[in-house]
């Protein structure tokens, strides 16, 4: 190969590289701008609607005025309920998968089950919640039914996060404890679990964020169009932020009139969900930095 053809071939090779890198950078830019665009637009429009009254008052004038306090409270109930269901179940499952299970058919089936559960569409969870909790177990449309449905929805997330956290605990910790004649259960409970706790909590928080933003699973299991009073028991229906947005934006005759309320509600929901995610992300990087092993 003489110098000239080598040079021109290099030029065309680098040209391809520049083209490709350009496309790659552009895609990253597009994604970033999409996120920023959405956030900026919602922030800009929702900012004026969100006042102290908006957050602390119930809706008035057939939901064309007033605030969204019952929806905030309802979302909190549903979310807390979901995590109460999913966290213990998820952690126990993860402990079994990482600490007890041997490679084999059972583990394989459980893993496939968890993966498939993660892939079930949220509206199908809604149908299941309706068929099982609302109808079959006669919970009715209620906080209980909604929280259980959401809990199952986020279960795979929690299992995944907990498994990852448990796997990150050095094997030497387990060996050190077992070699001292400590039982397997005590080793898990007193050494492995505490070491994995930050990671598990981070996963739980991400699960909370996910649960707080879901609409379809609670549409038929828990969410009410409008409630004048706050729920008194777990068998009451509740308003919820995501469902409230959907209702205001699509139903009724005041869609244009209630735009400010819609923007405000969207902003509150985003602040809640992304705020929760951000806490988890920050927590995680903090724990990574302070890792003691």
């Amino acid at each position: 190969m003489n110098g000239k053809t080598f040079e021109s071939s290099m030029r065309s090779r680098y040209f391809k590289q520049r083209l490709f890198f350009g496309a790659v950078r552009l895609s990253a830019l597009v994604i970033t701008l999409a996120l920023l665009g959405i956030l900026a637009y919602i922030l800009d429009n929702g900012f004026r609607a969100v006042t102290w009254e908006f957050i602390t008052q119930p809706p008035t004038d057939s939901m064309t005025k007033g605030g969204i306090m019952p929806a905030i409270v309802g979302t909190l109930y549903l979310t807390v309920g979901a995590i109460l269901v999913a966290l213990p179940l998820g952690v126990v499952s993860a402990i079994f998968l990482t600490e007890y299970a041997k490679q084999g058919a059972l583990t394989r089936i459980i893993r496939i089950g968890v993966n498939c559960l993660a892939g079930v569409p949220s509206v199908v969870f809604g149908l299941f919640g309706l068929g099982f909790f609302v109808v079959f177990l006669k919970f009715g449309s209620s906080i209980l039914a909604g929280a259980l449905t959401l809990g199952i929805l986020i279960l795979p997330t929690i299992i995944g996060a907990a498994e990852e956290a448990l796997k990150a605990v050095p094997q030497t910790f387990r060996e050190a404890s077992l070699a001292l004649g400590v039982s397997k259960w005590n080793t898990i409970f007193r050494i492995v679990l505490p070491s994995a706790l930050p990671g598990i909590l981070t996963g739980a928080i991400l699960g909370v964020g996910r649960a707080a933003g879901e609409t379809a699973p609670i549409m038929f299991t828990a969410a009410a169009f409008f409630t004048a009073v706050l729920p008194k028991s777990i068998f009451d229906e509740v308003m919820a932020l995501p469902y409230h947005i959907y209702v205001l934006a699509t139903a009724g005759t005041h869609i244009e009139e209630t735009r400010p309320l819609q923007y405000g509600t969207v902003l509150v929901l985003i602040a809640l969900v992304l705020g929760i995610d951000l806490i988890a992300i920050i927590m995680r990087s903090m724990f990574r930095r302070n890792k003691r092993w």
Binding site: P170, T172, F173, E175, A176, S177, L178, A179, L180, G181, V182, I191, S195, R292, W293
Partner: peptide
């Protein structure tokens, strides 16, 4: 293991 203790290659104190 309570009666036969073990010390490992790398020191492995608990955190």
């Amino acid at each position: 293991r309570q009666r036969i203790g073990m010390v490992f290659q790398k020191p492995n104190p608990f955190p």
